[in-house]
């Protein structure tokens, strides 16, 4: 395990290596992919990328929470949360790649 953190820059670099585009155009494309996925989630609720995984938005209804410091009961407002279900391919690659020995 190398435990690095990759960013948009590393993804742009991967696009740059893959196709003969400029670094600028590569990074614009990465940005656009992220925007299109975000917009689709905000308006449509689901993004399915085959062999990667599925992002979906779930609606949560109001529930009673508790302020852990004071013990006071407070309502948690209804909200939409994002969940991600990895593909089998991703699960297998992550499990195999991080196996020790």
């Amino acid at each position: 395990m190398s435990n690095k953190t990759l960013t948009r820059m590393d993804l742009s670099e991967a696009v740059f290596r893959e196709v003969g585009l400029s670094r600028n155009e590569s990074s614009d494309l990465v940005e656009r992919v992220i925007e299109l996925m975000s917009d689709a989630l905000v308006d449509g609720g689901q993004v399915k990328i085959s062999s990667f995984g599925t992002f979906s938005v779930r609606a949560k209804s109001e529930r009673i929470g508790r302020n852990p410091k004071t013990g006071e009961e407070v309502p948690i407002t209804p909200r939409r949360v994002l969940s991600f279900r990895p593909s089998h391919l991703m699960k297998d690659r992550v499990a195999d790649g991080n196996k020790k020995g």
């Binding site: 960013t7 991967a14 196709v19 992220i34 994002l82």
Partner: peptide, 27 residues
């Protein structure tokens, strides 16, 4: 198609090495 594949493959490969991928604003 190759560009889109390169992006998603890079994320999977990073995680297979035990790395994190942080895309500010997205997740």
């Amino acid at each position: 198609e190759r560009i889109v594949a390169a992006i998603f493959d890079e994320i999977i490969e990073a995680m297979a090495r035990g790395d994190r991928v942080e895309l500010r604003g997205f997740g």
